[in-house]
Design a protein around this nucleic acid. Sequence first.
RNA 1: GUGGAUAUAGCGUAGCUGGUUAACGCGCCAGAUUGUGGCUCUGGAGAGCGAGAGUUCGAAUCUCUCUAUCCACCCCA
Length: 449
Amino acid sequence: MAKIIKAPRGTQDILGSEVYQWQFLEKLLRETAALYGFKEMRTPTFEEMALFKRSVGDTTDVVQKEMYQVQAEKGQDLYGLKPEGTAGAVRAAIENGLLKEALPLKICYITPCFRHERPQAGRLREFHQFGVEMFGSQSPSADVEVISIAKHIFDLLGLENITLSINSIGCPTCRAEYHKALKAYFEQYRDQLCGTCLERLEKNPMRILDCKSPVCSEIAKGAPVVLDYLCDECKEHFEGVKTRLKALEIDFEIDPNIVRGLDYYTKTVFEFISNDLGAQSTVCGGGRYDGLVSQMGGDQTPALGFGMGLERLLLVLKEQGIEIPAPEPCELYIGSMGEAANIKACSLAHKLRTEGFFVECDTMNRSVKAQMKYANKISARFSMILGDAELESGKATLKDMAGGEPREVSFETEQLAQVLYDANLAKMTDELAEQMGDTALADLMGFKG
RNA sequence: GUGGAUAUAGCGUAGCUGGUUAACGCGCCAGAUUGUGGCUCUGGAGAGCGAGAGUUCGAAUCUCUCUAUCCACCCCA
């Protein structure tokens, strides 16, 4: 036996037993975004490294130590597998002239992302992000529109205990002031800070606020707060965001310690956090990046967006016991005995499938008993066995696997199709009744009649 | 990159202080009167115990190395 090759570390096979959850989620995501006018965009899985260096940031951990780099041919520029979705989206928007059209431009995407990190609960090397990006508006109403999409999605899924934290990290001018103040503050504790924080002190003092080490976080408590250093414009913008969030009745808390690790963020930054997730508790994170488009070579265009981790979302759903409806099982299993009957069964199945029914027939050459067992295992709604007798009479016994009365049917396609159709109708009515309650359904029927 | 835990059939587990053909549940296959599932019963296939080395008369059980997985740091969705 040849050695079995395993999936790369930190990657996952999404199998039949769970793909339907992904499909359900992806559909809900796209449809919800569409309600807000966000159109899906698909961009390449890999881009030039330079793109990520310029957008995400040359000094960020993500670019510096977590990227998968690929070299197609010797001497060519390096490519990188996308570690997040914004960079590619911004590039595509500029390259295709989308920002010259009527603004705002609203786009969304579902994409795999790659980061070479140590895998952990809620953290994979290949993971999937749903993201939205909105270009052209500097109004706080854009911030709130984007935030409300995420909130809307959580509500639709029935998730609880997802808290929204927001902060403003200001524009480049007020942030410069803040950096100065922060640096001055932390300088006093130079000898107590951890090694990484000492580096941060030079490169990006804001990151010290995020440090989990007990000493640093204790020191950070007394540090100056960004919000006190915002310029008038940024302050006003932040106020605008807050009042609008309140108007939409979206609960939030202000967390001055939210510092996104991607360089492009400005002004509003936010996170949706779930405590059902373990250490990686952010389900959705995003913010404004007013400088990014011009930095990437486009016209100065304010913009913002968020990324949402799909596997984390699925984890929270699971943790909260929220079940995604499983797909409908097979409607009819057509068993057969003997060559002639098998051929008939196959052609019958084929015809019914072209009519849109989910039908299965025997392809394993098994005994009738085994075929019935199989029909039961796949939760087929009806089953029917074809043999010489049936071929001769043109009739077969249609068995209701759930225990209803078996009945004799001609296996002409139309008749079978009619039976399956009726069964579906009956089932839908039942489900509707269950959903609405008997009285409501009675009312509806009464109203119709 | 750092730390801790774990690693036994397809899946989930048992295997006490080392001792004959590694056990159980689920799943899979086949039977319980001939062409019909679900419940029950019976039988069967399937791992040589993550990989490699060592200690020992003898190791899934002890030691070492490696690898992988999980969790945490870090980072972030």
